[in-house]
Structure formats: structure tokens, C-alpha cells
């Protein structure tokens, strides 16, 4: 049962600022489907239109053209928001409220009340490790604490679909790991998570699918595993540098090259070639300490895609 959580078609947003003189096309004819039960990461450089997309989906800003559905309902309504959670970038809370009161406020606006709400608030503040700050006014919160409160707030109504705009922004490394764990846990409970980020290595760790957005245009969308598929490229570490004296056809063909102190890189076409190389090294008495298969990182893909797109545009 893989239904669609987010569905957009031809979604376009043009902002016209300073009395309509200057126009910014923040999103250009975006068509995207996100299935339920996954973590989807939307990546893109600053100003790519990531936040704009979320705002359009949540009715915070209105599309210039195109349409979109979330959880099967058109975005013009507001009733489906009972099933949605959102952590905006640069979120602000009424500074005169304490963390607990902020949760009360948003909980009530999400249609919750009484002991059910109080229980949920305690549970969530515990989850994001703010329980002991519950009575502290939010104006005294640190940036990371605000971010944790924002996450807790987004989970109040037990949402089916959660939008997170830079959720780990300003959070320390341990906190980031904790947030990632929470997100994976949510996914395992059947929730759909839509994540905006430019922390690529982090996104790579948890997302199932990613979309890469640049200047309002979706450059690529797909499965993270497929995108970062292994290359037939290896990295090997050996003891000593006796390998430099070896001069063999096989090694030359694999473009065997020294990377640094102990590491060498090489490419092979198949497993047989790989084993031939290993045999050659072993018969020459070389001690292999470590061997790694090189992967395309999301970062490499991202950077090359963006560069390519910008070059095309320049031409």
C-alpha cells in the first residue's frame, strides 16, 4: 500500500517584489510525487526554492500556476492540516510563553486539549530532551533548544506527513544524531517526512529519495541508493611502498595510482580483474591492510549537477 503523500503538477511561483518591477521565479513548473512512508530530501543551494515549495504546499503562500495535493486533498483547504506537522526555518514563538505553553498553544490550535494534550507535551519534550526546560520562557532558549522545541511542536498532533525545513540547523553533532534517530523512528512508524536541507552527508544517511532543486528547477529526483551507486573504483592500503617497483600490464590497465602515504586507487571492469590485481600484489609479498570500494557521494552528484545546470544556463 504505497499511496501518494505529496503530488504537484506544473507548480510555479513567481514573487513580484518592489511594486511588481522585479520578478523572481522561485519555482518553475515543478512536478513531483512523494509516496507515503518514506523520508524525502529536497536538496538545493541557497535560494533554490526549497522553502517556497513547502510554503506553497501548506498554503502559506499561493502558487502563480499549477496545482498540488497533499494527503489526497487539494492544498487550498486547511482541514488536512490536522494530519500535518511543520518545522519552519527561522521559526519564532511568542517570547512571553514558556516551552510548555508554546506546546499548549499549538496543541490547542491543532484541535487537542486536556489530559491528552498534557500527556503528549510531556512525552514530546522528553523525546527532544527539553523536559527540564518546560517552564523556562522561550526567549531564554538557545538556538538548538528552539530547534528541538520546533521539532516537538511539529509532532504534537501525531501527524502523518511532516515537513522539516533545515531541522538540524544550529543543533550540535550529538543533537543532530538524536534528531536523525527520531526521524528514522517516525518513518518506521509509517510517517512520511519531507526534509529540506543542504547538509548533504546528513541527508544521505537517512533519506530514501531525494530531489535536487536549482533556481526553481528540479534537476533530478530519484532513489538515493541508485544515485550513489557504487563505482568500480577501489582504494587500497598496503604496507611499505614496495609496490612502486612493480611494473605490470595489469596495474597499468587499472590505472593504479598513489593517492597518499599508504593509499593507492585503481579501477577495474569486473571482479575477475579485481582478483587478478590482488593475486599480483600478494605474490609479490605485499601486505594488504585495507581495501575500500569508492562510492559516489551525494555531494559529488549534487555539485556536478548544479555546475552542469549553471553552465548550460550560461550558454
Amino acid at each position: 500500500m504505497n499511496s501518494i503523500a505529496i503530488e504537484t503538477s506544473g507548480l510555479t511561483k513567481v514573487y513580484s517584489s518592489s511594486f511588481g518591477k522585479r520578478k523572481v521565479e522561485a519555482l518553475t513548473s515543478l512536478s513531483l510525487n512523494v509516496s507515503t512512508g518514506m523520508i524525502f530530501g529536497l536538496l538545493g543551494p541557497n535560494g533554490a526554492g526549497k522553502t517556497t515549495l513547502i510554503k506553497l504546499l501548506l498554503g502559506i503562500t499561493f502558487p502563480t500556476s499549477g496545482r498540488a495535493n497533499i494527503l489526497g486533498e487539494d492544498i487550498t483547504g486547511y482541514k488536512m492540516k490536522y494530519k500535518i506537522g511543520y518545522l519552519p526555518e527561522n521559526h519564532k514563538y511568542p517570547s512571553y510563553l514558556s516551552g510548555g505553553e508554546v506546546m499548549q498553544f499549538f496543541g490547542k490550535l491543532s484541535g487537542m486539549d486536556g489530559t491528552e494534550l498534557n500527556k503528549k507535551i510531556d512525552e514530546l519534550l522528553e523525546l527532544v530532551q527539553l523536559a527540564k526546560w518546560k517552564k523556562t520562557k522561550v526567549k531564554n532558549y538557545s538556538k538548538g533548544m528552539m530547534q528541538r522545541l520546533g521539532l516537538a511542536q511539529a509532532l504534537l498532533n501525531n501527524p502523518e506527513l511532516i515537513f522539516l525545513d533545515e531541522p538540524t540547523d544550529g543543533v550540535d553533532p550529538i543533537g543532530r544524531k538524536e534528531i536523525r534517530d527520531i526521524l528514522v523512528e517516525l518513518k518506521n512508524n509509517g510517517k512520511t517526512i519531507f526534509l529540506n536541507s543542504h547538509l548533504l552527508s546528513e541527508v544521505e544517511l537517512i533519506t530514501d529519495r531525494v530531489g535536487i532543486l536549482n533556481k526553481g528547477i528540479l534537476l533530478r529526483e530519484g532513489d538515493v541508493k541508485e544515485m550513489t551507486q557504487n563505482k568500480e573504483e577501489y582504494k587500497i592500503s598496503i604496507e611499505g611502498n614496495s609496490i612502486d617497483k612493480l611494473d605490470d600490464e595489469i596495474l597499468r590497465k587499472a590505472s593504479f595510482a598513489k593517492m597518499n602515504q599508504d593509499y593507492y586507487s585503481f579501477k577495474v571492469e569486473n571482479t575477475q580483474e579485481l582478483n587478478k590485481i590482488l593475486d599480483l600484489l600478494r605474490t609479490n609479498g605485499i601486505v594488504i591492510k585495507e581495501m575500500l570500494q569508492q562510492k559516489n557521494s551525494l555531494e559529488e552528484i549534487f555539485i556536478s549537477l548544479i555546475k552542469e545546470a549553471d553552465k548550460e544556463k550560461a550558454q
Binding site: 492540516k81 500535518i84 511543520y86 514563538y93 499549538f106 491543532s110
Partner: peptide, 10 residues
């Protein structure tokens, strides 16, 4: 940051 949050609620 304020209005974004409010409008995301039902």
C-alpha cells in the same frame, strides 16, 4: 517564522 507556523495549523 510566526505566521508560517500558525498557517501550518488547522
Amino acid at each position: 517564522g510566526n505566521i508560517d507556523l500558525l498557517l501550518s495549523k488547522p
